[in-house]
Design a protein around this nucleic acid. Structure first.
Lengths: 210, 210
DNA sequence: TACCATAAGAAACATCGTTACCACAAGGGC
DNA sequence: GCCCTTGTGGTAACGATGTTTCTTATGGTA
């Protein structure tokens, strides 16, 4: 295997670049005009290629959606740039949860890719689902820091409960089923105060004030 | 499903019958072959009419989806036939929540209509959303029975928290993101125990045993 | 009975995802 | 260096979808 330092890009490099360009254009198209506007022809036109490229690089629209699925989960991290450096694990948990909600509210169409139904040809593979779960690692780590001695299994369990709760709130909020933003914020604060305390995670209510 | 044209019916009756037949056929088509299989041509073929009927009766596929949205929420009640007659409000709340989960797991495609993304032309009107909220009335009633003196606003708030939680759990469970059925059941039990206690709703953990 | 508004069917239209077919160029073996 | 294999991407077609238009027929009403 040889490494090409030439200015001319190798086939694999071109392939990777085009793949990234298609993915970025798809995410932009979705954010601008909604998930329904994601048509292969329109996407290909924006990148100045033919629709065939999507088939060679992603295997079809379903593959593109799965790549977007992974991309959308990775995007959560962009909404928590300085959160990971917060020393207090309790505060870090709270801010991670808030970041998740901010992300979902700011990018509802990407959030729809993550949790939209399978009718759009969205049935993520086990590997993609594992990737999604792996994005919760920082919060699981913070949970274990909150109570020394907590096992990984216990942290996973609490994580699942917190994830379910924040997803439920955000999901109903996006569908305008639980009132406006302030109501959802109150719901958010109360639900996590209750859940964290129930699961024995030390949580000072004063943290919510900031 | 065919409409009986022999019986002499008024135009309004025929219209209503055809509307119900289309809705039922759509729900059946979805349950049998998934939301992606809901095509107007296939639906019309099943009811032995042309696709135009969907346009005169629902205004298009979007209108059909909104009617299905309401229909799907109404369907929850069919999973709680004897639950409403449970005397103990605590036990009634638990069984209502369990019924909701059973419904979602048994009819995932109808649940997708209720909470699928807007890409499928699903943007329920305020009236439909109010209808969805109204299906939570039995549980709000049970909440107020649990603690005499609870205001309607407080019951609404707790209801929103419970709905968010059960939707979050069920949604992640359907997407296979939080483990299998047993894990989701544990999550379900623990989350609601924690939430109900946090909101001051008397809840005996022994109720979960049955 | 005669008129009219309305509904349903047939077919066309625009668009979608997908797939043959085919040039064409990069990469490896001689 | 040359040729061949391989794979990549463009063009155009195919089937299916939601929607619209035109036409026909039928129930309701004066």
């Amino acid at each position: 295997m040889t490494v090409d330092f030439d200015a001319r890009q190798s086939r694999a490099e071109l392939r990777e670049d085009l793949r990234a360009a298609l993915l970025a254009a798809a995410a932009r198209l979705i954010s601008e005009e909604g998930l329904g506007a994601l048509a292969l022809r329109r996407l290909a036109e924006r990148v100045n290629v033919s629709t065939k490229a999507v088939y060679t690089l992603f295997g079809g629209k379903e593959g593109l959606m799965e790549a977007l699925y992974v991309h959308a989960f990775d995007g959560i991290a962009s909404f928590e740039p300085e959160v990971l450096s917060i020393a207090s694990p309790q505060r870090r948990i709270l801010e991670l949860l808030r970041s998740y909600r901010r992300y979902a509210l700011a990018r509802p169409d990407l959030y729809a890719v993550m949790f939209g139904d399978a009718a759009m040809g969205l049935s993520p593979s086990a590997e993609s689902r594992r990737h999604a779960w792996n994005t919760t690692r920082p919060m699981r780590q913070a949970l274990r820091e909150c109570r020394p001695g907590m096992t990984a299994e216990e942290a996973d369990f609490i994580m699942r409960a917190l994830w379910s709760a924040v997803h439920g709130i955000v999901s109903l909020e996006l569908r305008q089923l639980i009132g406006g933003h302030d109501m959802a914020t109150r719901l958010f604060d109360e639900s996590f105060t209750g859940l964290l305390r129930h699961f024995g995670v030390p949580f000072d209510r004063e943290l919510l004030k900031e």
